[in-house]
Nucleic acid binder design. Structure first.
Lengths: 199, 199
DNA sequence: GTCTATACTACGATAGAC
DNA sequence: GTCTATCGTAGTATAGAC
């Protein structure tokens, strides 16, 4: 379900933060009166939480297909999950809500619980399970740590996008940059899991 | 050189962003009158840029010892650089200015140039040079991409700190968590460089 | 339910005393 | 140089018309 008000809220909260965004501007972008926000969500804070739910729902839908830890090669499952996450992080679509999430990571509010429960925990668990299966190791915390380093290699291309663009000397990501990033990450993960596997 | 006003500015701009932070609150934290900010830096924007310079200077000083691409094993140089960066990202000291930088990454302003030139470019170049030396490869862009994935594995522990704490089921990072993170990252980098090295 | 009006608060900038 | 006092602007919330 699409919602003009929530789209505008995610975009502006993501770009400017809770304090920086204004309900006037959000309402204007959504084509409604500001007081309608008060009516529907009780105020700015309520709208912010609703935006978090909206993001969690969207990510959940996007990642769902890759999630189930069904039978199959664990390495393939991990690579599929990471590739999906990478594509998401590189996409323009992810920009506003990735910003939203990173802000919440740095300063969690009640909205972070909704993001974590609604979208993040499942992805991390699925990755950690795959890591254990692929390496033959059983330390859950260690597997989660490894999974985190996988996610970090992907996240950096969104969270440090400005530095990435300077490093690549580009104005924006070209298709061959995207391919190179996918290839680099996949090679890294293969190397790490390979080195970690118990004989 | 320490400066109460710049410390307060970095902290509050980092936590709340340019729009969210207020000059009144910054001045109060620094124990000066708000109008003194106008006098010294011309206004809020000027203070923000000065804060960026201050951060770049601080990071430059911290990373300086590990930077020179002197003789020695390239793998050791890389691991030393990454270990220093990891210690910085895990430290409480880095919290306020890491937030500041990540905000600038997501929405670069003129302040990003100062951060990039003053602190980041040198670290990335040094890492990329090390990657080329360690693997025997000569593609600079590819080496920078690899360096970025190294930094991403470190950055995630600051940028996604809230998720890390939930994954580790901790309230705050304990010494053995820090040791495990250092060990995980080092093992990953060894595996990646090893797999990448031309025979 | 959604709008327009308005009340109230907090912000950044500036002028002028010291 | 640093302060206090004040101005204009923009923010959220609310009351009341439709």
């Amino acid at each position: 379900m699409s919602d003009a008000l929530l789209d505008a809220a995610v975009s502006q909260f993501g770009d400017l933060g809770l304090a920086g965004a204004s309900t006037r501007a959000i309402a204007a972008a959504a084509g409604i009166a500001m007081s309608t926000i008060t009516y529907r969500y009780g105020g700015k804070d309520g709208l912010y939480l609703a935006a978090a739910d909206y993001i969690a729902r969207t990510i959940g839908e996007r990642m769902q297909p890759a999630l189930p830890a069904r039978a199959g090669d664990p390495l393939d499952r991990i690579l599929g999950l990471v590739r999906g996450f990478t594509a998401l992080m590189l996409s323009e679509e992810s920009r506003p809500w990735a910003r939203f999430i990173i802000r919440e990571q740095m300063q969690p509010t009640a909205a972070f619980d909704r993001l974590w429960d609604g979208a993040m925990r499942e992805v991390l668990d699925s990755l950690a399970t795959g890591v254990m299966a692929a390496t033959g190791r059983t330390d859950v915390k260690a597997a989660r740590l490894t999974a985190m380093t996988f996610l970090g290699q992907v996240l950096v291309f969104r969270a440090a996008r400005a530095a990435v663009m300077r490093a690549l000397e580009r104005e924006e990501l070209e298709p061959d940059d995207v391919a190179a990033i996918h290839g680099r990450i996949e090679a890294n993960i293969r190397a790490i899991l390979n080195a970690e596997a118990v004989q």
